[in-house]
């Protein structure tokens, strides 16, 4: 850090605020995707970013093949859902009863395996997903220039979160998912089908990953094997900071870390943006020291259940 921070640090304007909300919205969606699977499987899916990466490559290829936009988005969703279900069937479900450490290492392995496969198959230089590039153009609202994708991201996040709340609160499968997240064993004893609950959580999580892939490829059209890796690490930190054991606190944690990251990114001058991760993760450590159970969770115990 320089001895004196430039005045630009404090130059948070409306545009930065809206961008920060947009990033918070995307990270909230990722947090929900990670939190849902954690709820029923007690598994922190580090490979969530690679699902997004796979979706982004699907969009890039569709763009390269001149597919219409809808077909590209459909391909993205199909690839992410198929990969997510395969990941669940082949690795996560068989390891469901193992220790958290085993499951975490398994998800690390899946993540880096997929990244390596992408590197071998598609090379390190990346592919452009440009079909939705026009969403990067700004619209002016109240004198503030806002990129369309930021508004789209916020709307998608709100729609997805409302739909998810309706699913969880108003449907039988939602009730079963909530119950399984609270006490999986008792839920099964009552006749709640573990396969159905896990499958539903994995499917919803995949749908969210695909939506995030679409949004992130607009913001960053160059798709490389490490696409969304950094975002996933930041969101995982956000989920833990917010409170892992409740979906709401995990989501708020995801939003908060995205929002703060967006604010810091906007406030720091371009030539000092390398300080962003240090600030962000310094803040993460500080919050964890003060509230290890989660910033938004009830109580303090890290083992508190839903």
């Amino acid at each position: 850090m320089t001895a004196s921070l430039p005045p630009a640090v404090l130059s948070i304007d409306w545009q930065v605020l809206v961008d920060a909300v947009g990033l918070g919205a995307v990270y909230a969606l990722m947090a929900v995707g990670i939190g849902l699977v954690f709820g029923v499987l007690r598994l922190v899916n580090f490979a969530y970013g690679q699902l997004i990466m796979a979706g982004a490559y699907a969009l890039a290829f569709a763009s390269q093949w001149d597919w219409p936009l809808w077909a590209g988005v459909a391909l993205c969703f199909a690839v992410v859902i198929a990969l997510s279900l395969a990941m669940d069937r082949v690795v996560f479900r068989p390891l469901r009863t193992q220790s958290p450490a085993v499951m975490l290492v398994a998800t690390f392995s899946v993540a880096f395996l997929l990244q390596s496969v992408a590197l071998l198959a598609f090379g390190p230089l990346g592919k452009a997903a440009s079909s939705l590039g026009y969403l990067n153009r700004p619209v002016t609202i109240g004198g503030v220039d806002i990129r369309k994708i930021t508004l789209v991201a916020i709307v998608i996040a709100v729609v997805c979160l409302v739909a998810l709340v309706l699913l969880l609160e108003r449907t039988t499968v939602g009730l079963h998912m909530r119950a399984a997240a609270m006490d999986f064993r008792t839920s099964r004893l009552l006749g709640v089908r573990a396969d159905r609950v896990i499958g539903s959580a994995v499917l919803v999580s995949a749908l969210l990953a695909a939506a995030v892939a679409v949004i992130l490829t607009v913001q960053n059209p160059l798709v490389t094997p490490d696409f969304a890796l950094r975002d996933t690490i930041v969101v995982l930190a956000g989920v833990v900071v917010g409170g892992m054991n409740r979906l709401l606190s995990a989501t708020l944690g995801g939003f908060a870390i995205g929002f703060v990251s967006g604010l810091l990114g906007g406030a720091l001058p371009t030539d000092q943006s390398q300080y962003l991760p240090s600030f962000l993760f310094g803040l993460v450590i500080l919050v964890l020291l003060v509230r290890p159970g989660g910033l938004f969770s009830r109580g303090h115990g890290p083992m508190e259940r839903v």
């Binding site: 039988t172 009730l175 079963h176 839920s187 009552l190 006749g191 709640v192």
Partner: peptide, 10 residues
Amino acid sequence: ENLRLGLAGR
């Protein structure tokens, strides 16, 4: 809701 969960065994 607890009762509704019991219906899962029907």
